[in-house]
Design a protein around this nucleic acid. Structure first.
Length: 366
DNA sequence: TCCGTCACGGTTGAG
DNA sequence: GACTCAACCGTGACG
């Protein structure tokens, strides 16, 4: 097992451990942002945390843009908009008016509530449907009524993809009037993924948060929802300053991150979907395993014997290597048995960051 | 020396 | 269950 774990991580040029293809632990991401907010230069952060400067730059850029330290949603596919139900409606429109234009169909799909502006097919898609699926109406197609799948609701989208519905067609039917993140409000988060999905911050910020608050997710939708870290990108974010001051670290956002990365056992509403985050606690432990401590903890502090340049005035924020190693909870397999217990709130990791933030940070967040 | 950017090899998850 | 695809990741190199 140890050999297997040792093959898991890689070591970058700075001596830091990373897992190719996987995001850095939240603790490190948080530290990057914090140190940046304290005025420490990205290059220094890079060396101190042993994370490539490209990564530091990326995380900081994202934080400045979205206010979130969390990585984006990994994997998944863009949900189809041309569902059988949509195709059926298009077919109906076409049959009712053979001369109808694609854009007219599009308008009707919107007007009839078959789709909303977030999932309505493009005109070109409609044209393609007309050409490929409806053009040969003589032949029974896959969407022939006789072969139709069971009737679908007016909005035939998988509940997993809870689109942001600012309109009365919202699945919850309540509190959908203009949630943040959809129409470019002050706190709008523009994750560069245009399609609205459960992965999109727009959706998350609005629907997810609202639904959480209203308890609407307690039902099957919540159970089937596959949340991502990105979901928390803007939770509790109201407005992110374009140029946050050193002390302007958006504590509410970070606190939200910290708060919501509590171990599932300690959470009620949010705990249920935290394990599905991009950092499953168990996975993280496995991923950032033995070598991490070996590379991070014993390593000489950077820069050697250089405190002031990195130490912010009056604050002891310099990250000691051991502290960091604890903060990122690189598991040492020799110290943790197979029956790994959930880290206690008073764990070293929590202490490491808790002492820095005055906030509890569970090890599972790393 | 610093920093933004991008290619690369990798992971992930829906279809 | 294997596969594909398109998203994401961090690293490392370049300018």
């Amino acid at each position: 097992p140890r050999a297997m774990e040792q093959t898991y991580g890689e070591v970058n040029q700075l001596g830091g451990v990373f897992v190719n293809g996987r995001p850095l632990p939240n603790a490190i991401r948080l530290r990057i942002v914090e140190l940046a907010q304290l005025g420490i230069r990205p290059c220094d952060i890079s060396r101190q945390l042993r994370v490539s400067h490209g990564c530091v730059s990326k995380i900081l850029a994202r934080y400045n843009e979205t206010g979130s330290i969390l990585p984006g949603a990994i994997g998944g596919s863009k949900p189809r908009v041309t569902t059988p139900n949509v195709v059926k409606h298009i077919r109906d429109y076409k049959q009712g008016d053979p001369g109808i234009f694609a854009w007219e169909i599009r308008d009707r799909l919107l007007a009839d509530g078959v789709c909303d502006k977030y999932n309505v097919p493009s005109v070109s898609s409609i044209s393609r449907i007309l050409r490929n699926k409806i053009g040969s109406l003589a032949q029974p197609g896959p969407y022939e009524p006789s072969k139709q799948p069971p009737p679908q609701p007016a909005l035939p989208y998988n509940p997993i993809y809870q689109y942001p519905y600012p309109t009365p067609v919202s699945p919850t039917g309540a509190k959908m009037g203009g949630h943040p993140g959809v129409h470019g409000s002050a706190g709008h988060v523009s994750i560069p993924r245009s399609w609205p999905s459960a992965h999109s911050v727009s959706n998350i910020l609005g629907i997810r948060t609202l639904m959480e608050q209203t308890g609407a997710l307690a039902g099957s939708e919540g159970a089937s929802y596959s949340p991502k870290m990105e979901e928390w990108a803007g939770v509790n974010r109201s407005a992110f300053p374009a140029a946050p001051a050193v002390n302007g670290l958006e504590k509410p956002a970070l606190e939200a991150d910290i708060k919501y990365t509590q171990p599932a056992s300690g959470l009620s509403a949010v705990g249920s979907f935290l394990p599905a985050c991009a950092y499953p606690a168990s996975n993280q432990h496995g991923v950032y395993s033995a070598p991490a401590g070996g590379y991070l903890a014993p390593g000489p502090p950077w820069p050697p014997a250089q405190g002031p340049p990195l130490a912010p005035p009056g604050a002891s924020v310099s990250v000691h290597s051991g502290e960091l190693a604890a903060a990122v909870t690189f598991k040492h397999p020799s110290r943790e048995g197979p029956d790994r217990k959930p880290p206690s709130p008073g764990s070293k990791a929590a202490d490491a960051l808790g002492s820095l933030h005055g906030l509890p940070l569970p090890a599972s967040s790393s």
